[in-house]
Amino acid sequence: MQSAWLSALAFLVVSTLLGLGVLGAAKALRVRARKDSRIKHLTYECGEQPDGLAWMQFHARYYVVALFFVLFDVEAVFLFPWAVVLRELGAQAFIAAVSFVVVLMLGWFYVLRKEALQWQ
């Protein structure tokens, strides 16, 4: 088992090398401007003078979406071990999971009714 993880690790290392390799090749190949200017490093804002910093406050619905993602993913994660043993354990596992999912879907109905995920 560990050997497979080591293989995956080696795979990731090779992909890292590729990314760094491209950046390295570009470092060697790319041109350098003779004259640098402040305007060149201004943030792109369609030709306008950048107005303030880019970091701004976002709407709370982003947070709500992330929250629901975590909750639903937790649900899915619990379903993975269930999926593996479903055949083996039979009807009892099936009923347990169905009730698990149904209770969660109640929450989904509530979200829908309250329009908490309305994205306008």
């Binding site: 041109v31 305007i39 060149k40």
Partner: peptide, 13 residues
């Protein structure tokens, strides 16, 4: 001035 600024923001070449 905007055109000039956009021009300056393009990378060489």
């Amino acid at each position: 001035p905007r055109v000039k600024r956009l021009w300056d923001q393009m990378p060489e070449p």
